[in-house]
Measured scan of single mutants.
Amino acid sequence: KPRTPFTTAQLLALERKFRQKQYLSIAERAEFSSSLSLTETQVKIWFQNRRAKAKR
């Protein structure tokens, strides 16, 4: 499955949200993903990867 190329605007929004909160609830994820027109899975995986990156 090819990787999702996120737009610059989407990445900025994701990073901004991540700075506020490293873990999203299911409801927050649903709302946030639709506002960015991404799937919930894409947002979930992005947050997982971003948390892993923050640990390094």
Rank of each mutant, 00 (worst) to 15 (best):
K1G: 15
P2C: 06
P2Y: 11
P2Q: 10
P2H: 07
P2W: 02
P2V: 12
R3H: 15
R3W: 03
R3L: 11
R3M: 13
R3N: 15
R3S: 15
R3K: 15
T4K: 05
T4A: 05
T4M: 07
T4H: 13
T4C: 04
T4G: 07
T4F: 12
P5K: 03
F6S: 01
F6W: 04
F6E: 05
F6M: 03
T7H: 03
T7D: 07
T7F: 02
T7G: 06
T7W: 02
T8E: 15
T8S: 13
T8G: 09
T8P: 12
A9N: 10
A9D: 13
A9T: 12
A9M: 13
Q10T: 09
Q10F: 00
Q10R: 03
Q10A: 00
L11P: 01
L11V: 04
L11F: 13
L11W: 00
L11Q: 09
L12A: 11
L12W: 10
L12F: 07
L12E: 12
L12Y: 03
L12R: 15
A13M: 13
A13S: 09
A13Q: 15
A13G: 06
A13N: 06
A13P: 00
L14G: 02
L14D: 13
L14K: 01
E15M: 04
E15I: 01
E15G: 02
R16V: 12
R16I: 07
R16W: 12
R16N: 12
R16T: 14
R16G: 14
R16A: 14
R16Q: 10
R16H: 13
K17G: 03
F18K: 06
F18P: 00
F18I: 09
F18L: 06
F18H: 04
F18D: 00
F18W: 05
R19W: 06
R19M: 14
R19I: 12
R19Y: 07
R19E: 15
R19K: 14
R19D: 14
Q20Y: 07
Q20C: 07
Q20G: 07
Q20R: 04
Q20W: 06
Q20F: 11
K21D: 11
K21G: 07
K21F: 04
K21M: 07
Q22P: 15
Q22V: 04
Y23D: 12
Y23N: 09
Y23C: 09
L24A: 03
L24R: 01
L24W: 06
L24M: 08
S25Y: 00
S25C: 05
S25K: 00
S25V: 00
I26R: 07
I26T: 14
I26Q: 13
A27C: 10
A27W: 03
A27V: 10
E28K: 12
E28M: 07
E28Y: 00
E28I: 01
R29D: 04
A30E: 14
A30D: 06
A30M: 11
A30Y: 08
A30H: 11
A30K: 04
A30T: 10
E31C: 05
E31T: 04
E31H: 00
E31P: 04
E31G: 07
E31S: 04
E31K: 04
F32E: 05
F32M: 08
F32W: 05
F32Y: 04
F32L: 13
F32T: 05
S33P: 03
S33R: 01
S33C: 10
S34I: 14
S34L: 09
S34K: 10
S34D: 02
S35V: 09
S35T: 08
S35D: 06
L36G: 00
L36F: 03
L36H: 06
L36W: 06
L36D: 00
L36A: 07
S37M: 05
S37N: 13
S37G: 15
S37V: 02
L38E: 08
L38Y: 03
L38K: 04
L38V: 08
T39D: 13
T39Q: 02
T39F: 03
T39G: 07
T39R: 00
T39S: 13
E40W: 08
E40G: 04
E40P: 05
E40S: 04
E40I: 02
E40Y: 02
T41D: 15
T41V: 10
T41A: 14
T41I: 15
Q42N: 01
Q42V: 05
Q42I: 05
Q42C: 05
Q42T: 06
V43Y: 03
V43E: 07
V43R: 03
V43L: 06
K44W: 02
K44V: 07
K44N: 13
I45K: 08
I45Q: 09
I45S: 12
I45T: 14
I45L: 12
I45H: 08
W46A: 01
W46M: 03
W46N: 01
W46F: 10
F47P: 00
F47H: 02
F47K: 00
F47L: 01
F47E: 03
F47T: 04
Q48V: 06
Q48F: 05
Q48A: 11
Q48S: 10
N49L: 08
N49M: 08
N49D: 08
N49S: 09
N49Y: 11
N49Q: 08
N49F: 03
R50Y: 05
R50S: 08
R50W: 01
R50M: 09
R50C: 05
R50N: 03
R51I: 11
R51S: 10
R51Y: 08
R51L: 08
R51N: 06
A52R: 06
A52E: 15
A52Q: 10
A52V: 11
A52N: 05
K53T: 12
K53R: 11
K53Q: 15
A54D: 12
A54G: 09
A54C: 13
A54V: 10
K55R: 07
K55G: 09
K55D: 13
K55M: 07
K55E: 15
R56W: 11
R56T: 13
R56C: 09
R56E: 14
R56M: 09
